[in-house]
Amino acid sequence: MNHDQFGQLSNWSIVLAAVFYFAAFITHLAEWAAGRTVPADSEGALLGAGEALTAESGASVPVQVTAADRGAERGADDADDVEARVARLSAIGFRLTVVAAALHLIAVVSRGLAADPVRVPWGNMYEFAMTATLVVTIGYLALFKKYALTWLSPIVTGFVLVVLMVDVLILYDPVVELRDALQSPWLIIHVISAIIATGAFTLGGMASALYLIKDRWLRKHEGELPTRGYLARVPSLLQLDRFAYRTHAFAFPVWTFAALITGPIWAQAAWGRYWGWDPKEVWAFITWVVYAAYLHARATAGWKGKAAAIVALIGLATLWFNFVGINFFFGNGSQHSYA
């Protein structure tokens, strides 16, 4: 295939990937709709630790038990039918997502092959967003089993779908050669680590957001557990917090590497200074500091749980702002204003 054909392949695969994400998203919505009528967990795995969490974050509400461990034994009879359907839909949605991810991967790779000379596919916002969403999907698929992520399925598929739509409709750019500043081996390392970290932070942020939603629900209902609907299937606060922590703990060193090691090395090679407080650098630094604060918050009395989750979301906001906002608001003020 020649470069143009690879470009075509990339464009078609991404659209097809979006179609599969859409199908997966609909399937997962159907999964939740099917599960609505039945208590998520007849027995309820008693984890109890959610209690400590809410108490720590300053609520006087006694949360007795917080549990929706889907792996736990469930009640028998009629609920079984529905549960079987829910499980089947969940599996279908998962497989659709796998197909979508494969197409998505093809789109990213062929985008790189489409350029002449062949290059890494991270030259502009279109490519950056395309790759970052792929990282979100792959992260989700990889952790699906280990953390029983069924509760995250509609959120991940919906999120990736929306971002891809925006990407294709608004940010699309024909393939061009890399700009001068981007032609450095450090670019490859710098940008891929920034993308991986962005994907992982995003995944962690989803868990933190759900944490806040569930926490609010529990406070409002005086600690009574949700028995029906989506929230009932979202795991306990403890588990949400743990999942969020693990993804953030993975992303943070990667971000450190991207923003504070390879970034400066590249900047030194390109512009003659390791660190120049260019708007993009300023916000990368802000993101880093806020996530450091998140890791601290999780170890500080009075900040565990809810406050930490809020800090994590602030971190995510600064991260995305850096990606989207800087380009649009500060434009040519930044030496980085390409991606």
């Binding site: 407080w277 802000i286 500091v289 806020v290 604060a293 601290h296 170890a299 009395a301 800087i326 500060f330």
Partner: peptide, 25 residues
């Protein structure tokens, strides 16, 4: 720890204006 946390937030906040106003350096 709490002071460290607050100082980290202050640091993040204090860095913001430098991205909005053009910088001498």
């Amino acid at each position: 720890m709490r002071t460290a946390l607050i100082l980290l937030f202050l640091l993040a906040l204090a860095a913001v204006p430098g991205s909005v106003v053009p910088q001498e350096s």
